[in-house]
Amino acid sequence: MPILGVALLAACTLVGLFAGDLLGAALGLEANVGGVGIAMLLLILLSNLPGRRLGPDSAAGVSFWSLMYIPIIVAMAAKQNVLAAVSGGVMAAVAGTLAVLAAFALVPVLSRWSRRP
């Protein structure tokens, strides 16, 4: 049943977000600390339990929402305060570009490491 997958996904998200909330409070931050990350790890662990793989129907409930991720990000982009960001647009462009160049430069370095026995 697809609802089982959706329910599992929602439960992992809720548990992760609440754990992130508690973690934030424990660290003295008024912030959710890594709730999304915890929820993702939880979903990976629960959907990989030996002998307890989700059936294809249940899995479809989760896959649907993972396919909706780009559209939701599009909706999120459409409700941003973009006008205010344009004034500092150079900073965004520089940060994004330099991050890409740095990562490109490291690809051959790390690939070489992995070839060492």
Binding site: L9, C12, V36, M40, L43, S66, I72, A75, M76, K79
Partner: peptide, 17 residues
């Protein structure tokens, strides 16, 4: 749709598989 609830829900879903 672009709010926090759906955003977090869909991001967690991408970890599946």
């Amino acid at each position: 749709l672009g709010g926090n609830m759906f955003r977090d829900f869909a991001i967690v879903a991408t970890a599946f598989g």
